[in-house]
Design a protein around this nucleic acid. Structure first.
Length: 426
RNA sequence: GGAAGAAUGGCAGAGUGGUUGAAUGCACCGGUCUUGAAAACCGGCGAACGUGAGAGCGUUUCUGGGGUUCGAAUCCCUAUUCUUCCGCCA
């Protein structure tokens, strides 16, 4: 959620940023409506505060009068307070309504893009930030897509998942299951070696948590909702891990707060269909190791680049062709100020698959969740939150299978062998 | 799932209707002392919002929501969580 102070103080920059994010004309108009509503809120509170103050004073007087035995005067004042109370009730209900209206407007505005974000509205407008220079086409024409390899070597089964749960819930088996476990361990070890504290969080969160990181209300339809207990299955570990610091004030010396965690991720992916969803390309449950950082506003972009470096090291170590995109304004997620997407190239499918998204949310999440720090002057300020996948498994598995296939099996990347215990999947 | 009890500031812990944002201790910050540190002593120390150039002032806040009262941390209702006992259970 954008800070009201920014909207009030930097109207032009806000509007320019929203345009870059490609919001509708109606939403641009919201900027002025929000300021007007906030004015209303302020004047309402000023009135209410004065009234409550008067009531408090009168109540004290009444207490004194009773002590001094002046009951009749006390009763007179009681009547006056009763009248004031009527007025205060009206003002209070107005205050409640005004702040609800304000909140409802604020929550529909996306974060402002960083100045380095390219203009554009669609995937083609994304800027290629970095691309490896190895060959993309050095594989046999007979190369199989991963779903066929899966069948050949009994790595995973989507059909079994349908039987157990439904479409999009893969069941990994044998060396396929072991590979999953190896990747998770490898990614976690790399993250903890880089100074991230490992967290194993709950896989379900309550409404407050989902709201704080921005999944609610905008992405309600993307999460599985356990209605009986009103809990949500997490779409990413970002949600529980960042929420660890909801409603907290951290010390300057705590920066940067670096955390990592493995969790399965559950996504309904409502509305997606077609060739994209074949095999492991898009599933409802996948495993992911996430990195989350809470950082001082002055340092967050430096930290973002370090996170990009970290993820780069992972894809390079696995030997996968990759490229890094700096997302354009229109393709970025709602809450992000700057996002780098990592894509790996699948030689058998001949297409790029997104495997990581590393973003700086600046104060967008911390404003919602009141995640603050005490600055040099002892003032409480909103911290910056950042997160990224390091890395999402399903598509990495798909690409490893496809790119490293040979006539007699899939060669396991060196870095994984100490975790898998085998060097060929067949 | 059943029964009983509890929920107060970063933590511990007083407070059962009237200057209580809340004693006290710890932690934390500033100072005195010290070659330095510790100890001791002195002072400060929650948060949000409003208002003001600022000092400040006002309002709200004692788990959440609702109620009683002129006035609630304190009384009532309700939700949640925790503790103990019972039941079930990896």
């Amino acid at each position: 959620m954008l800070e009201i102070g920014v909207i009030r103080g930097e109207r032009e920059r806000v509007i320019e940023g929203l345009k870059k994010k490609r919001v509708s004309e109606d939403q641009i108009l919201l900027v002025d409506k929000i300021v007007a509503k906030d004015d209303e809120r302020k004047s309402n509170q000023t009135q209410l505060d004065a009234l409550l103050s008067e009531m408090n004073n009168l109540s004290k007087e009444i207490g004194d009068l009773f002590k001094n035995g002046q009951a009749s005067q006390a009763n007179e004042l009681k009547n006056r307070v009763a009248d004031l109370k009527e007025v205060s009730k009206v003002l209070e209900s107005q205050a409640k309504q005004i702040s609800e209206e304000l909140e409802n407007m604020l929550i529909t505005l996306p974060n402002l893009p960083h100045s380095s974000v390219p203009n554009g509205s669609k995937a083609e407008d994304n800027e290629i930030f970095k691309q490896w220079n190895g060959p993309l086409d050095d594989i046999d024409q007979e190369a199989l897509p991963h779903w066929e390899l899966a069948e050949k070597y009994q790595i995973f089964s989507l059909a079994d998942g349908v039987k157990l749960t439904g479409a999009g819930f893969p069941v990994y088996k044998g060396k396929g299951a072991k590979l999953q476990r190896a990747l998770i361990s490898y990614f976690l070890d790399e993250a903890t070696d880089a100074g991230f504290l490992e967290i194993l969080p709950p896989h379900m969160v309550n409404e407050s948590s989902a709201r704080a990181t921005g999944q609610l209300p905008d992405k309600e339809g993307q999460m599985y909702h356990v209605t009986k207990d009103d809990l949500y299955l997490i779409p990413t570990a970002e949600v529980p891990i960042t929420n660890l610091y909801r409603d907290t004030i951290i010390q300057l010396s705590d920066f940067p707060v670096k955390m990592t965690g493995y969790t399965p991720c559950f996504r309904r992916e409502a509305g997606s269909y077609g060739a994209d969803v074949k095999g492991l390309n898009r599933v409802h449950q996948f495993d992911k190791v996430e990195i989350v950082v809470l950082e001082h506003p002055d340092k967050s972009y430096e930290t973002l680049m370090q996170m990009v470096e970290h993820v780069t090291k992972l894809v390079e170590a696995l030997g996968l062709p990759y490229r890094i995109l700096r997302l354009c304004g229109g393709d970025m997620s709602f809450g992000s100020a700057l996002t780098f997407d990592f894509e790996v190239y699948s030689k058998a499918q001949k297409r790029w698959l997104e495997v990581s998204s590393v973003s700086n949310f600046e104060t967008f999440q911390s404003n919602r969740m009141m995640l603050r720090f005490k600055d040099e002057n002892g003032k409480n300020r909103l911290a910056h939150t950042l997160n990224g996948s390091a890395l999402a498994l399903a598509r990495i598995v798909a690409t490893i299978l496809e790119n490293f296939q040979t006539k007699d099996g899939v060669i396991i990347p060196d870095v994984l062998r100490k975790y898998t215990g085998f060097d060929k999947l067949n």
